[in-house]
Amino acid sequence: MSPAGSALVGLLVAVGAVVVLPLGLRLLGARVVPAPRSAAWPLAGACAVVSLLLPRGALAAALAVPFALASAVLLAAGVRLAARALGGHRGGASPAGPPSTAATVTALVLPAVGASALVAERAGWGLLGFSGTYLALTVPHMLYAGFGAALVAGAVARLAAADRLAVAGAWGVPAGTALVLLGYFVGDAAELVGAVVLTLALWATAAAVVRSAARPGGHPAAARALLVTSAVVVSLAMVLALWWAAGEALGFAHPGLDLMAATHGVANALGFVLCALLGLRLLARDRAAHGGAAPTDHDRTSPRAGARRRPA
């Protein structure tokens, strides 16, 4: 990857760590994440950004540690949510459906993978047989595909629990992301399978959003515009992901890493994840203002018990 490409990846990491991650945690609420509105989350992200500006070495690695610790807190929150959901199923009650819970747990767990890669890359170490560019690219992938996409898919599945496409997306995003990670160790063919599953899952989530937005009334215009924009962007951006993964696995021409960062990376980070989270935030505020939602065991976007559920 060229210096310009590396700089762009660093910029995407900065937006993800300082803006996207804290915004997503606010959507989840205090029953899922400790102190989701605390300034500690963006501050930990800012430390990671500063570490990227320094030469590799002990100081750069040390500055990445606060972000790793914050990710460890999220990992623990994900484990707690999964345990609570399993306990609820055994007891016959579940405040949120299994697909939504699976996606949310994925969103909470995977930033720790990216943070571990960041510490290792900044220190100049290898990690599980990977180093350099592989580790550097793992960080934004875990912030946007691991955290952002899974969080969005889970939120859409909660808000449109009767929509089979939304449910399929919430199951598929964790599965696709796990397969892509497995492909790092197994080979390009497995990574291609993961890319296909992840793409189909995100297309399903996007279709559920567009189908809901086409229904008259129900949501603020700004929220609808942001969510539809995110759906259109991810539908196009994932074509590039398929092209790249298929080219790597099957040996035909495909975009290089610099072009993928400038197109697929920017589109997914800003056009999909950021727009979707902002749209969901506006929906949450609208529901709170009209008494249509209250915080639950899962997040602030879930409908209040007994209230009529609107599709996403």
Rank of each mutant, 00 (worst) to 15 (best):
L250F: 11
H290W: 09
F185N: 05
G251V: 03
F67A: 15
L226N: 05
A46R: 03
P174Y: 01
A253Q: 10
V9G: 12
V232H: 07
V20M: 13
G279E: 04
T296F: 00
G279S: 04
P174S: 11
L181Q: 01
S100I: 02
V193D: 09
L63R: 03
G279W: 05
L108M: 08
S230H: 07
F147K: 00
P140E: 11
L240T: 09
G129A: 07
A190Q: 01
R285D: 15
D188A: 15
G172C: 02
L250Y: 11
G146D: 07
L182F: 12
P220T: 08
G306C: 08
A4R: 13
P3S: 06
G169R: 00
H254S: 05
L200H: 03
L53P: 06
V273Y: 01
A120S: 15
R211H: 09
A288E: 05
V20H: 07
L250H: 03
G271P: 00
A61K: 00
R31W: 01
G169H: 00
P220F: 12
L43A: 15
S230T: 03
A288S: 11
P216K: 10
A70M: 09
P34N: 13
G194L: 02
A40E: 13
G183K: 01
A30S: 14
V13S: 04
T138V: 15
W125C: 04
A39H: 06
V186Q: 13
V9I: 14
R287H: 09
N268H: 11
M142L: 12
R56F: 10
R122G: 14
L108N: 01
L25E: 04
A170C: 02
T104Y: 06
A160F: 00
A213S: 06
F252H: 09
S71K: 11
A161S: 14
V49F: 00
A178T: 12
G126K: 05
V209M: 00
P34V: 12
L159A: 06
A294L: 11
F185W: 13
L236F: 13
A241C: 10
P311E: 03
A136G: 07
L270T: 00
A289V: 00
A76N: 08
T229E: 13
A93P: 10
V73R: 11
R281V: 09
L43T: 12
V50Q: 02
G88W: 11
L282R: 03
L128F: 10
T104I: 15
D299Y: 04
V173D: 06
V65G: 08
F185T: 14
A40N: 12
V32D: 04
A246R: 04
P3A: 13
L11S: 12
R285C: 08
A175F: 01
A294C: 03
W203N: 04
V234M: 10
A204I: 05
A245I: 05
H298Y: 12
W41K: 07
S212K: 08
L283D: 00
F147G: 04
L59I: 13
G91L: 15
E191V: 03
A85Q: 12
G187W: 07
L52I: 02
A117D: 09
V196E: 05
A267I: 06
A195P: 02
G218N: 00
A208C: 10
L8D: 03
R304V: 11
A190K: 01
N268L: 08
A166F: 10
L282M: 02
